[in-house]
Design a protein around this nucleic acid. Sequence first.
DNA 1: CTGAGATGGCAACAATATAACAACTCGGCC
DNA 2: GGCCGAGTTGTTATATTGTTGCCATCTCAG
Lengths: 148, 148
Amino acid sequence: MPMSTDVLTRAESICQQRGVRLTTQRRRVLAILCASNRPLGAYEILEAMRDGARTLAPPTVYRALDFLLEHGLVHKIESMHAFVGCNHPEHPHSSQFLICHDCGVVTEIDDAAVTQSLGSAADVSGFRAQRRVVEVIGTCAQCAEKNG
Amino acid sequence: MPMSTDVLTRAESICQQRGVRLTTQRRRVLAILCASNRPLGAYEILEAMRDGARTLAPPTVYRALDFLLEHGLVHKIESMHAFVGCNHPEHPHSSQFLICHDCGVVTEIDDAAVTQSLGSAADVSGFRAQRRVVEVIGTCAQCAEKNG
DNA sequence: CTGAGATGGCAACAATATAACAACTCGGCC
DNA sequence: GGCCGAGTTGTTATATTGTTGCCATCTCAG
Ligand SMILES: [Zn+2]
Ligand SMILES: [Zn+2]
Ligand SMILES: [Zn+2]
Ligand SMILES: [Zn+2]
């Protein structure tokens, strides 16, 4: 499946391959996250999922998020208590996030040097890494240009 | 002031140099964090500060933490919603944390290669870094040894 | 068809963090 | 000493984020 294919379609096929179900609620959450250009909090997703008067309860969203996180379809931005869709969920990866506190845009990068140096640093301490949280908060290029 | 001097004493002198006050509440919070061998949540600190029947309110702790964070005397572990005392607060530094999910111990390291590669990765995107959150969750050497 | 397992709805709750305002403390100054 | 003002703390209430438990419903293999 080429990179250009729609993320939702790719997610669908990933789930099929793994024998798990991308159910309606899960797909809705993923779609909402992918449509947003910035991370969304769980309760923002909840709000976006409202269907007329019908309002959903938090567990619905958190369960969907748990599933999506587990399968690497979304990432959690710890420093923001928010979630973003992943752009290349085909392979497990440890990525880093550049978070602009001005415009709110979050860029996911996967820098080999960072991953490697972090691995080495852990190794030196005899530490077995399992999960990595790497978030850089600052000003993106656009906002830096705009505001001097 | 040599590295061997007690952290509280060093904190005192740092605050004096900067013309800010390490008040009783702030010193208490710092002392509690430094006495702990693992990160503490704000409400755990609150509990530790209880003095007989007299119970404090959350803002007291959060305000002290704000001050200590601002002056680099403590760090926040974002992935845990918890706080640790810094062992070398004399100079501003961007550190990384190795977090053992088994014994709860958190080790602060300051790896030049990590800092440097992360800086380069941000530069490539024209991103101006201001704050860095680097946390590795896994198993520490002791626990790895113990549990195979 | 049927039963086990996965999923979703719902209500209550727990944990983390902040807002707003009043009261107090500590310097410097007259 | 007495006064003032900035910074600090106390207090109450509230906002935000995340979880648990229970049961209804749906799905799918056998
Ligand atoms: Zn990703
Ligand atoms: Zn920006
Ligand atoms: Zn430090
Ligand atoms: Zn350990």
